[in-house]
Design a protein around this nucleic acid. Structure first.
Lengths: 347, 347
DNA sequence: TTTTAGCACTTAACTTAATGGAGTGCTAAT
DNA sequence: ATTAGCACTCCATTAAGTTAAGTGCTAAAA
């Protein structure tokens, strides 16, 4: 267990701040000038030597100034940092852009990713409240003429998924009607997960009573169902990566950028909802591509509708206190907006 | 009007090929070795001096080898190049990936962008056949329960657009039925463009016979209609930009990458359907961000269903003959696949 | 015991100089 | 019209020198 004296703590804090703002290693002389206590640079140097010994700061070369190590950021985040109160200007932006009318949960969640990335100049990820609590509340097949049918699935949370299909010549829309009625009778009200499970087991059997070749229909139903049950991350501020990245090798940039498009990998990196606000720094992130970055994740809570997530990817040298403050506000505002939205459908 | 001797033409061709393959300026000595005629490097130098004088090749510095100028590429493309026969392997890939079953035109068009970018390692854009010939063939409002309604619009080309809306408490789905009937009676069969025009003029007036506050509905209808009438480019191989780009300034990369996301700007750059296959090189492209790249565009023809476009963005030093060959094949295969698709709905 | 002044030392970053190689243009001979 | 030969130019690389920032350590001061 590391314990720092008051003075050491102030020094670490100043190094983190200076390096985050200026981007250059911090030397003893510049520290002397801005620290409140009046000691010489030699004293600061002694303290810095100690901070280095216990691994909180490192040199970029033998005679350079110091920069925080990952362990140093960790200590700073855990013991020194105080979340910054969010700028009233920023708060207005957030509340205004979540204040409008939305027709879909996904729109709200995607919008959040965009505003947060805009406010931070970093890259953001948002995940809607888990769908594992969602239940099937309606399924339609709407014939559109000319071999086309639209399948529409609605959940009790107001989510709507749809997909258009072409159906073979020998299958008319009318023949599908008893199938829809079967689904309405047997499956409505069940959690999507359960329906998915039954799709593997009993449903095919029962359906064969109505349809000679149920596979085509099962495919349709399965696809829409999977779409509704899928957890999707929305990514905001992808382009910001170009600003804060440390890489200049185009191949590395490519890999990194490509990662942002693979929303399933993102899920692995960010992990399931958990602690309120979590900061992962450098190699604490379980993905080698991100080992030079920091990730702040926050879980938000929408009562019986489950939990969702917000995440923020930026350089290890980021203004953590402002960021954590912002994440806190988003946690609240997003949950509030979603509750308001859900309430509308629960009426 | 430029005329080159046979030998000058061979030299230009060799310079273009060498530079495209190797990326280095080409000198007289290496040219001597690979050219079929047996002359000395001094002779080649004289010819090169002439080619430079008329602006087809340039030096990177006073004593360097030569690289083709934009004018040089232009001449090469217009007078020397012969489209390369497409590799049978590549042809298989194309036919196989367009051979599957598709449920939407957009899927086919998007898929084409992806394969082409994969085969070329460049960035591609595809535009579906113009919608200006599309006619409204159906409009539905499907109540989904709990204040939600899905609006579905179908065109005679089999395009389906939909959007979910929340409707105010004081408006029930039933009240909207006469509105839908009005649309079916009055607007079905009209080109989307005409419907859009009427939306600005006579429709609001007539609608007010059925609805007290038609604005909400008009908004819904207008949005779905606009989506159906919008021309959308699909972009493939965005990530390839990282490989062939010449920039290393992250800010320029950002601008460039951002351009690829702005599909409306893309339309301006690529322009309307026109010549069969057009090559624009460097500053011939009407966008400063792309002045170091080349753009090959091709128009394909789907009979009465209109024309669409394929485009390819890559470095100015690209293997034009292979690329033009590929574009030719795509032109045919895509048109063929789309015809097959449309025929299914015209039955 | 803690702090400080002073100094030798290290390193990155920048500048300057030297060298070799690839390629050119030009001239004079073929 | 072609070619051999040569002076010349420029890039790329390496080597050497300089400066500025910053460190660790020692010995004296507080």
């Amino acid at each position: 267990m590391i314990t720092l004296t008051e003075r050491q703590s102030l020094i670490l804090k100043a190094i983190v701040r200076d390096y985050t703002e200026g981007g250059n290693p911090v030397g003893s002389k510049s520290l002397v000038q801005e620290l409140p206590m009046k000691v010489s640079s030699a004293t600061i140097r002694n303290e810095m030597a100690h901070l280095e010994e216990i691994g909180l700061i490192v040199k970029t070369h033998l005679s350079s100034g110091r920069i925080p190590s990952i362990k140093g950021y960790r200590y700073y985040v855990d013991h020194i940092l105080k979340p910054e109160k969010v700028d009233s200007q920023d708060l207005k932006v957030i509340q205004h852009s979540l204040g409008g009318e939305f027709h879909k949960i996904d729109e709200i969640v995607a919008q959040s990713a965009d505003i947060l990335s805009q406010l931070t100049s970093y890259t953001t990820f948002t995940l809607r409240p888990e769908v594992k609590n969602s239940r099937l509340s309606g399924f339609r097949l709407v014939p559109l003429g000319n071999h086309q049918v639209m399948a529409i699935l609605v959940t009790n949370n107001g989510d709507v998924e749809n997909q258009t299909f072409t159906i073979p010549n020998d299958l008319t829309g009318d023949e599908l009607e008893p199938v829809v009625r079967f689904i309405d009778d047997q499956l409505i009200g069940l959690p999507l997960q359960d329906v998915l499970a039954k799709l593997q087991s009993e449903i095919p059997l029962k359906l064969s009573q109505y349809l000679q070749h149920p596979n085509g229909f099962l495919d349709i139903f399965g696809r829409v169902l999977s779409k509704a049950a899928a957890e999707r991350f929305y990514v905001g501020g992808k382009l910001n990566l170009f600003d804060y990245t440390t890489k200049q090798d185009p191949q590395e940039m490519r890999s990194l950028y490509s990662l942002l498009d693979q929303t399933d990998h993102i899920a692995d990196v960010i992990g399931p909802p958990g602690q309120q606000i979590q900061v992962r720094i450098g190699n604490e992130i379980t993905n080698d591509l991100l080992k030079d970055y920091s990730l702040i994740t926050a879980t938000y809570d929408v009562d019986q509708h489950g939990q969702g997530m917000i995440a923020l990817l930026g350089p290890t040298a980021m203004p953590y206190s402002r960021m954590i403050g912002l994440m806190g506000v988003f946690q609240q505002e997003l949950a509030r907006k979603l509750l308001e939205y859900y309430r509308y459908f629960d009426e």
